[in-house]
Design a protein around this nucleic acid. Structure first.
Length: 658
RNA sequence: GCUCCGAUAGCUCAGUCGGUAGAGCACUUCACUCGUAAUGAAGGGGUCGUGUGUUCGAGUCACAUUCGGAGCUCCA
């Protein structure tokens, strides 16, 4: 057989050989480092025996495929260690994931101390350096083996495998056997750097109807220093956690008697949000053709019944009963969980000619959703939030163009905020296997999904597709960003809706005087302001671009002798809309500078005798350190320009401090 | 909603075997009037998240509850 290698060279063998044997044949080092193979594009275990001509890439633990093999094998070592220390634990599954691996057990929960003990046990196992042995069994024997070993979850997994599936196992060390499709390293001795990160609960097979298992998360790397780098990075990332930093910086707080998911924005956080809201409202109305609406925060249930939300999300709504007549549904009100139907009724209030289309409505809209108690997180998932929520009522021939415009607005907003490279676009589709969750016809879903696919392709926006992520009335583009914990949040969404115009009997009059159903685009431009603020805190680690800072300059008088001049400077700043304070505390300048730095201020101006006499300021910034003495008017021009253009100046890290 | 962890001064945290609460920073006052990352001194501040129980006695033990955190599940 002829084996074509990655570099294009061809190796010929007269008899069949395993990938491992070929790796060893190529070089002893490669044999030692090999983790898995890619045969004609498919990832294969090293033990796979090749008989026919094929393309073969041999991956080491330094390749992405090899790294996940390493992690997968580490998860087996973890399972072996857990079985040794906690023989009662039942094995569930243990795959490699993005940044490591996990293994689920049906067992007691594990404390940090338990994890440390398990890690120590893993060390012993690795030191023993067992080989992993691969074997296959017919279904009945496989089930028997797992039943004998009292592993009910494995039995269930085998039972659910398709008729023709190969049922494979790996055995290592003193009789540890796991049902597993592989691939795996040849031996556990190649595991050099690993760490158990945390333990938590996870549902068996990802369904809340099933038992809660105990999951252990861990990670593994080819080398110790790579592991160290990862762990340090993990800690650094958590230092940016908006939920910690936002509280430290006095942007928001929570109060137990106010309730879960109801953060209070403090003056600095509220100022940032005000800056964002004013900006978005201005550009939407003045540059992107939107009209503003202001609609009620609550409505009768009838409205949500008409929109179908009542039937899909009643449990997630705050319903207010009439105190005089609490049982009477006709007198109830529900706080709005979205603005869609309110803006539909704005559209319906007047007749519309085809000439006046599209109508683009936007509202800075406060919404209420009764999220389950475990779902709330900082500012990213809350029970009351504010969305730049818009609905475009569009002629069918305008849908594609307007959808593109919505994506363009989202892109412009992200570019201005400097976050455009941190997002992934997702085409969120319906789930053809779960039709109850969605309204409408399969053909319409397929068609609209294809429209969106075409648009993204034409705009050359990289995207991925996901089933079951659509809104119940239509597919959407979700723009997602990772938070510091590596979880994806949807920050902006643009949705294609073919159904609500029908539900709400919306129409416009075409050139023949006929009533025509419009299409609807649901969209946001920064998404939820709370979530966007969280995103920005984490993106900039609290060091916001100047235009967003709640305090842009701090005036630092060298002593109280210069307070008068500081006030004069302050007056000039105020005239120019520059957000600032004067630090009048009886402290040394060095102390005040240190505090201003720790407060992450973009600018400090120091005023003393020289500055007062010359009407100058001595400027120190987060970006360039000591910027020297400038005429006051020059500094004002400079910072006003920076704020007006929303410039994101590059940070120059200073040697000292945090 | 589920599993687990946590809550002590404004913040970060210590508090041993159950014996009546402690540090640093912050805050207030006073002195100093200062030139690019911490001036010095004095002082105030806590019914230990809340409730119930065990106990002669609870920050410490038990139960409940609220809030916070991680993960799972969910997210119009």
């Amino acid at each position: 057989m002829k084996i074509t290698l990655k570099d294009g060279s061809v190796k010929e063998y007269s008899e069949k050989k395993s990938i491992y044997e070929i790796a060893c044949d190529l070089s002893e080092g490669l044999g030692r480092m090999a983790a898995c193979g890619i045969v004609d594009g498919e990832i294969k275990d090293l033990r796979t025996v090749l008989e026919n001509d094929c393309n073969l890439t041999i991956c080491t633990i330094n390749d992405p495929e090899g790294l996940s093999t390493l992690r997968h094998t580490t998860s087996h070592v973890l399972a072996q260690a857990v079985k040794k220390l906690f023989p009662e634990a039942k094995l569930a599954i243990g795959p490699s994931i993005d940044e490591g691996f996990y293994y689920d057990f049906d067992s007691q929960s594990f404390s940090r101390e338990d994890l440390d003990n398990i890690e120590a046990e893993m060390k012993k196992i690795i030191k023993d350096g067992a080989e992993l042995k691969y074997f296959e069994l017919p279904r009945a024997e496989a089930i028997k083996l797992m039943e004998d070993r009292n592993e009910p979850y494995k039995v269930e997994l085998i039972n659910d495998l398709p008729e023709d599936a190969t049922i494979s196992f790996y055995e290592q060390g003193d009789g540890f056997i796991d049902l597993c499709a592989g691939p795996h390293l040849m031996s556990v001795k190649n595991i050099k750097a690993y760490k158990l990160i945390s333990s938590s609960g996870a549902y068996w097979r990802g369904s809340e109807k099933n038992a809660m298992l105990t999951r252990i998360y861990g990670t593994a790397f080819p080398k110790k220093d790579e592991l160290e780098t990862y762990l340090t990075g993990l800690a650094d990332r958590k230092n940016r956690d908006h939920n910690k930093l936002g509280r430290d910086m006095e942007l928001f707080t929570t109060v137990d008697v106010i309730g879960q998911g109801l953060p209070l924005l403090m003056p600095k956080g509220a100022k940032i949000m005000q800056t964002l809201i004013r900006w978005i409202e201005d550009i939407e109305d003045n540059e992107w053709g939107y009209e503003r609406t202001k609609t009620p925060l609550m409505a009768k249930p009838d409205l949500y019944k008409q929109s179908q939300h009542w039937y899909h999300y009643k449990d997630g709504m705050f319903v207010i009963a009439d105190p005089q007549d609490p049982e009477n549904e006709d007198k109830m009100l529900a706080l709005r969980p979205m603005t869609c139907p309110f803006q539909y009724y704005v559209f319906k209030a007047t007749p519309h000619s085809y000439r006046d289309m599209p109508k683009r409505y936007s509202e800075t809209s406060t919404l209420f959703r009764n999220e389950d108690s475990g779902e709330m997180h900082g500012l990213t998932r809350v029970r009351q939030f504010t969305l730049s929520e818009g609905h475009l009522i569009v002629r069918p021939d305008q849908m594609v163009e307007e959808f593109k415009n919505c994506l363009a607005l989202a892109k412009y907003v992200m570019e201005t905020l400097g976050v455009q490279d941190d997002v992934k676009y997702r085409l969120s589709k319906w789930d053809p296997n779960n039709k109850d969750k969605y309204i409408g016809e399969p053909e319409v879903w397929e068609q609209t999904q294809q429209h969106i696919r075409d648009i993204l392709t034409e705009l050359e926006i990289p995207f991925y597709e996901a089933d079951g992520e659509a809104a119940f009335y239509g597919p959407k583009v979700d723009i997602n960003a990772k938070n510091v914990y590596g979880k994806e949040d949807t920050v902006i969404t643009v949705q294609w809706d073919e159904y609500n115009a029908e539900l709400f009997d919306m129409y416009y009059i075409d050139e023949n005087g006929e009533k025509v159903r419009p299409g609807i685009i649901h969209r946001s431009s920064v998404g939820s302001y709370e979530r966007s603020l969280a995103w920005l805190i984490e993106k900039y680690a609290g060091k916001f671009p100047t235009w967003l800072c709640p305090e842009q300059v701090r005036i630092i008088p060298i002593s109280e002798k210069y307070f008068d001049y500081a006030e004069e400077v302050s007056k000039e700043f105020k005239k120019n809309g520059i957000l600032h304070t004067i630090d009048k505390r009886s402290e040394k300048m060095g102390f005040k500078i240190r505090e201003a730095r720790l407060d992450r201020l973009p600018y400090m101006v120091i005023v003393g005798e020289k500055e007062r006499d010359d009407r100058t300021v001595s400027v120190r910034s987060r970006f360039a350190g000591d910027e020297g003495v400038k005429p006051l008017s020059d500094f004002i021009n400079q910072i006003c320009e920076e704020i007006r253009t929303k410039t994101i100046r590059e940070e120059v890290p200073e040697a000292e401090g945090k």
